[in-house]
Amino acid sequence: MLNYLWGGFILIGILCAAFTGRMHAVTTGVINNAKEAVTTCITMLGVLSMWTGFMNIADKSGLTENITKKMMPFLKWLFPDIPKGHKAFEHIGSNVAANILGLGWASTPAGIYAMEELDRLNGGKSGASDMMCDFMIFNMSSLQIISVNMIAYRSQYNSANPSEIIGAGLLATLASTLTSIFFIMLRRRFFKKR
């Protein structure tokens, strides 16, 4: 799916640029973005590794396990196919916790660890398991409670009340998250397991 989309973006985009006479813009844009990918990764190298460092302390001290235990009733309900006490739950727990707190770059490594564990459960099949898809969909439904960045951008642009959107943002986030849970439940009800 992503292969078609990626190829489509590039081919149709360049065709489009040829007709609108924007080949030069595309050339510089592509090269600048390739550079930007590297600079982003250099920043990420620092910040993300800092979080995996702290997360490792939390793992070793049993803090992650402790937090996951509190979320367990919910996680078990959402992902009933993951065996009880499996390591994947811990990573899913820290991923969800980091997402809720809005620590974006702390949630990525936890999510990747969770996917690695789920992959092990899947026995090295090349396609994603139901568990992986469900976890990803839930994860991408946006779990963050307060978008601090958004408030900062709003005040930077002289909003009279930068934080007025918090309540509305929270409700909208709730809507997208509930929709993802609803989707997962419907999927489980109507489509066969794999």
Binding site: I10, V26, T28, G29
Partner: peptide, 10 residues
């Protein structure tokens, strides 16, 4: 990011 570059500028 390369695909985004095409999308943005084309």
């Amino acid at each position: 990011m390369v695909a985004v570059g095409v999308l943005q500028n084309s």
